[in-house]
Amino acid sequence: MLSFDTEEWFHANYDNINPDLFRGQGSNFRAQMDTLLQLCSDTGSRATFFVLGCVGEDYPDVVKAIAQQGHDVASHGYGHQLAYQQTYDEFKADVKKSVSILEDITGNKVQGYRAPSWSIIESNLHYLAALEELGLTYDASIFPVKTFLYGIPTAPTEIHQPRVNNRMLNLYEVPTSVVKLFGKNIGFSGGFYFRFFPKFLIKHAILAANRQGRSCIVYLHPREIDSTEQRLRLPHLESFIHYCNIDSTKAKLEAIMQSFQFTSIADHLRNK
């Protein structure tokens, strides 16, 4: 499965970063999206684009193009606020707002959601019930690792129907792909992990999963394929995580897309 968290270069969850201050100040977003859509066309790939509601407001033509080219338009929330910093009602309202914006643009029902920065964690896992209440059919917010910002290291690594308050929800959870290293789960197929690890290792991990009958999910952000995009001023470690190997990511993504058959999350679930 192929997915893109469709947001601008300044949508990040770091201290002292307020995305609203950058909105409307210019970016390469349109060119980045043209590149991603062309890569999908060239490789015969279908993808899920998790789109922020505010991006839908600013670039409705881009969102229409995503849908018209046969891809899955899903919700990434409205303004990239961390889910675990919202109350249940705030979270539900945020998702509902974004879904309404995206459905008005495309005319299609939004089926899926991914939380900004994987911010569905153990303390707010029950928020998934809000997605069920809104009529969504899948979530892709859970990363079965543990970092300073996100993760549920004990979460199932296979697609499953999550349980909340001892009740199985009527939606699927599509967790991010991981491999086991020294007894711990580690990501390899998206974001920093995709940029950091060499291409041969990513291919090997995907092939190994496929041989076991499992699919993998690749995820990236538009800014990650564009070394000329503006950059946030971040402390050294955060800057390394955010921008490591940006120069080579587009070529790596193209090579991976040429090596495997990719589909959207919605299509994959329909064919399960």
Rank of each mutant, 00 (worst) to 15 (best):
I120K: 03
A12K: 06
H268M: 09
A129R: 09
P235F: 03
M1S: 05
I225W: 14
A155T: 07
I159A: 05
V218N: 04
I206H: 04
I101F: 07
G183L: 05
S215A: 09
H242D: 11
A155H: 02
V51W: 01
N108C: 03
F29P: 10
G24R: 13
H126P: 01
Y113S: 00
A74K: 00
F240R: 03
Q85W: 03
F49P: 01
T43N: 11
E122M: 06
V99N: 00
V62C: 10
L2V: 03
P116S: 13
Y78M: 08
A266M: 04
W9G: 07
Y219L: 00
R223C: 15
T157A: 08
R167W: 05
R23M: 05
R167G: 01
L207R: 11
H11R: 02
S98L: 08
S123D: 04
T48G: 01
V63F: 05
G70M: 15
E57K: 04
Q161D: 13
Q38S: 07
C244K: 14
I105Q: 06
Y78F: 14
E133S: 14
Y150G: 05
A67K: 05
G24W: 10
H268V: 02
Q38H: 14
Y88N: 12
G151L: 14
R270W: 02
R30W: 09
R214M: 09
G26I: 13
V95Y: 03
L232G: 13
S45V: 07
S227T: 06
I265R: 03
T228N: 12
S45E: 09
D104G: 12
E8S: 04
A208F: 08
T228Y: 07
P153M: 14
E254C: 10
L134T: 07
D267M: 10
G187W: 08
S100T: 15
T263E: 12
V178D: 08
S264N: 04
R223S: 15
V99D: 00
M168E: 08
D5Q: 06
I121W: 07
K203L: 12
K180Y: 00
C54E: 08
E224Q: 11
Q68Y: 09
E57A: 07
D72F: 01
R223K: 15
D226E: 12
A93H: 03
I202L: 04
F196P: 10
H204T: 13
H11S: 06
F188I: 10
I159N: 00
